[in-house]
Amino acid sequence: MNRLFVLALMGASALAPQAASAADIFVPPPVEYVEEVKPNYSGWYIRGDVGYQFESETDGHWAFYNIFPGVEGIDDYYRYDKLTLEDGATFGLGAGYRFNEIFRADATVDFFRADVSGRTNCPLMIRTDPAHNIGPFGECYYEDSTEADVWTIMANAYVDLPQFGLITPYIGAGIGTAYVSYDTNNAQEVCPPCDPSYVRYSGTNEGADDWRFASSLMAGASIDLTQQLALDIGYRFTKIWEGDAWGYDAQDTEFGATGIQTKDNGFDVHAVRAGLRYSFF
């Protein structure tokens, strides 16, 4: 019996180092799979903007209508020297979609109302009228004043540049249409050297409206306020093509004049804007 106990004790002693070695073997913990979190760059968004559009000048042309009996009709076309779209506030709304971290696109509707002032020289046949003391170097011009509503409907595309913290610079371009609607124009002839007996022209012209081609370029930066809300600050240049300004006055109309008398050559509108962009994730 004692002999068996001794043999068992010896066997246990021999196995002890092997058990200790097995305990020293490192068993790595199970690998837990964590799903990759992709950036939240896709989704619809809406935007609202307010801005300030700077004064814009253009020129144009107008038709001189002869009212003398027997020769009624347009005698000639003259250059309209300067038409000014005054500065003012702009307002806009839009909706868009972000396709990835770099590219997004939206459709926007913007509006502004501006005072319009114009000035153009009187036709040569009036400026050289000796009966009213207007010589070849005499000054005679028309002053016009009205207002205009300008709507732009644009499809825009943007490229977002590398982000700096919460700030993301961007560049963009747009193409679309502009609706320009003039109010009634008030025209006044100015003739400083004229004889006091000379009756200066004064009249009104019915405003015209039409749809025109428009394009734009943008640059700016957005600042992340929250994961879904961003402040957008930028500059936008909008090219509005030529179109109708106003028609003939009552006197010309009485003698058969119809259609548009004055056309502008379009406007280059520069504006700074700030707005909020809300993304739906």
Results as ranks from 00 to 15, higher is better:
Thr258Ser: 05
Lys263His: 11
Thr90Cys: 04
Phe255Trp: 14
Asp75Val: 08
Asp224His: 12
Pro28Lys: 07
Arg200Asp: 08
Gly70Thr: 01
Ala250Cys: 04
Thr177Gln: 13
Ser13Asn: 14
Asp209Ser: 14
Arg236Gly: 00
Ser215Ile: 09
Asn66Trp: 05
Asp115Gly: 13
Gly94Pro: 06
Arg98Gly: 12
Tyr45Pro: 09
Phe91Ile: 08
Ala131Met: 12
Asp249Ser: 09
Pro123Val: 06
Lys263Tyr: 03
Ala245Pro: 00
Asn205Tyr: 09
Thr253Tyr: 05
Val6Pro: 01
Tyr278Met: 03
Val180Cys: 04
Asp244Leu: 02
Ala178Trp: 05
Asp87Tyr: 01
Gly88His: 02
Ile25Pro: 07
Gln251Ser: 13
Leu229Thr: 13
Val6Thr: 14
Thr184Tyr: 09
Pro136Gly: 14
Gly275Pro: 02
Ala219Met: 10
His61Ile: 08
Gln188Arg: 13
Ala14Pro: 03
Asp76Ala: 13
Thr168Pro: 01
Glu254His: 12
Met10Gly: 06
Leu217Thr: 11
Ala173Ser: 10
Thr204Asn: 03
Gly275Gln: 07
Arg127Glu: 07
Val190Asp: 06
Trp44Met: 15
Met218Asp: 11
Glu139Lys: 08
Ala107Tyr: 08
Leu276Ser: 00
Gln18Lys: 15
Tyr248Ser: 07
Ala8Leu: 15
Asn100Thr: 11
Ala245Trp: 00
Arg47Leu: 15
Arg3Leu: 14
Asn40Pro: 01
Val150Phe: 00
Glu147Phe: 09
Asp106Arg: 04
Phe112Ser: 07
Ala214His: 01
Phe64Pro: 00
Ala257His: 05
Arg273Lys: 03
Cys194Asn: 05
Ile25Gly: 11
Asp81Phe: 03
Glu72Ile: 08
Asn156Gly: 03
Ala148Ile: 08
Asp224Pro: 02
Pro69Arg: 09
Gly203Glu: 05
Phe68Glu: 11
Ala250Asp: 14
Ala230Thr: 14
Leu225Asp: 06
Thr262Leu: 04
Thr152Asp: 06
Ile175Asn: 01
Gln228Cys: 06
Pro196Leu: 13
Trp151Ile: 06
Asp106Pro: 02
Phe64Trp: 10
Asp59Leu: 06
Asn121Cys: 05
Arg119Glu: 13
Ile240Leu: 08
Phe137Cys: 09
Gly174Lys: 05
Val50Lys: 00
Ala214Thr: 07
Tyr77Cys: 05
Ser215His: 11
Glu35Pro: 07
Ala19Asp: 15
Ser56Pro: 01
Tyr142Trp: 09
Ser145Glu: 14
Leu83Ile: 12
Glu72Tyr: 04
Tyr170Ala: 04
Gly96Ser: 09
Gly135Trp: 07
Trp246Phe: 13
Asp115Lys: 13
Gln261Glu: 14
Phe281Tyr: 13
Asp106Tyr: 06
Arg3Ala: 15
Gly48Arg: 02
Thr184Ala: 11
Val27Phe: 10
Tyr52Thr: 05
Gln227Phe: 01
Val180His: 07
Leu229Lys: 08
Ala221Phe: 08
Asn185Gly: 07
Ala178Gly: 10
Val109Arg: 04
Leu93Ser: 00
Phe164Thr: 10
Tyr198Asn: 12
Pro28Arg: 02
Tyr201Arg: 05
Ile126Tyr: 12
Leu229Cys: 04
Thr108Pro: 00
Trp62Ile: 10
Arg3Tyr: 12
Tyr65Pro: 07
Thr258Gln: 11
Tyr158Met: 05
Gly220Leu: 08
Glu72Ala: 09
Asp87Gln: 09
Gln261Ile: 01
Leu85Tyr: 10
His270Lys: 03
